[in-house]
């Protein structure tokens, strides 16, 4: 979330004068998650069966995370990325923007793993102000593997969120008999998160225009009021939505039209074949030495 806010702020600085005009109409424009949502509905694969895409993404996620060597995760990363770029036709720039922050964080973590972990076979020795520092071979190997595992897992999940509208994911969850309360809550949260992003942004700009963020203490005060207000607004919105739903015969069950595209058997067979092949690769490369 902090990342999202930061990115938004950067964009606002650039076109400060447009913010005011865009309140309410293009508010979501500032938000990375809103952009992901937009691509989910407009990409070239959005009409394909969500069951297929979900199955694909989940199996690749599992294999990436469980694979002992980096070979399978690298394959997963390359496959997902090319599907995202060439089949779903997501612009490369946007995909790189998505990858940038997580990659930074993961790379840092993996460097730390490589430097501090491990106990077999010293690889190098550094003398730091009289302190002897030993880097181990297996630590470096773990660092590498972890990096590629995360990259594979991330890309497979980006594939899912960039190609599959939230609405279809929810329908699949309902079909898979995920408890009703979870599905219905997600459905309402998904819808109203965009309403509240707009409300929040409008309130924040109103505060800023009255100099509510012109100092550290003021910033803190304005932000706390914003959060408090937003909370009350959500309660109020809940009440009003409930009334409106009652007016259309709501009885405690949200019924939905199920008209998902049918998963093709060829695609399902392909996914299973691919997953099995990857699992075998992962197994065979278990003892591969990369350093």
């Amino acid at each position: 979330m902090a990342i999202l806010l930061d990115m938004r702020r950067g964009k606002e600085q650039k076109n400060k004068w447009h913010i005011y005009e865009e309140i309410g109409t293009e508010m979501s424009h500032f938000n990375l998650s809103a952009e992901i949502d937009r691509y989910a509905y407009t990409n070239a694969l959005s009409k394909n069966s969500p069951v297929t895409k979900l199955l694909f993404a989940l199996s690749l996620l599992l294999i990436s995370v469980l694979s002992p060597s980096p070979v399978a995760p690298i394959t997963v990363f390359l496959t997902s990325t090319s599907l995202i770029l060439f089949c779903a036709k997501i612009p490369l720039r946007f995909y790189l923007r998505l990858l940038w922050y997580p990659t930074l964080i993961v790379a840092l973590t993996c460097v730390i793993i490589a430097l501090f972990f491990g106990y077999q076979e010293p690889l190098a020795e550094v003398n730091l102000l009289g302190l002897r520092w030993i880097i181990f071979r297996d630590g470096v190997a773990t660092g590498f593997t972890t990096f590629f595992r995360v990259a594979g897992a991330l890309s497979s999940q980006f594939f899912l969120v960039l190609t599959t509208p939230m609405t279809s994911i929810l329908l699949v969850l309902r079909k898979a008999r995920v408890p009703k309360i979870i599905v219905e809550m997600s459905l309402l949260i998904y819808r109203y998160i965009f309403v509240f992003i707009e409300v929040m942004e409008t309130m924040r700009i109103a505060q800023e225009l009255r100099l509510g963020y012109s100092g550290w203490l003021k910033k803190l005060r304005s932000l706390s009021m914003l959060i408090g207000n937003l909370f009350i607004r959500t309660l109020d919105q809940g009440e009003r939505t409930f009334t409106a739903m009652s007016a259309r015969g709501y009885d405690g069950n949200i019924r939905v039209l199920e008209d998902l595209p049918k998963p093709s058997n060829v695609a399902l067979a392909g996914i299973i074949f691919f997953a099995v092949a990857l699992a075998i690769i992962a197994y065979l490369t278990m003892d591969l030495r990369i350093v």
């Binding site: 998904y190 309403v195 009334t243």
Partner: peptide, 24 residues
């Protein structure tokens, strides 16, 4: 209702319009 955001709760237009008839 006055504010359409109160009324449109479903994730797509179609699902929202279908809500009433499905409840019947």
């Amino acid at each position: 209702f006055q504010d359409p955001n109160d009324q449109l709760f479903a994730p797509t237009v179609k699902q929202d319009v279908a809500f009433g008839p499905l409840n019947l």
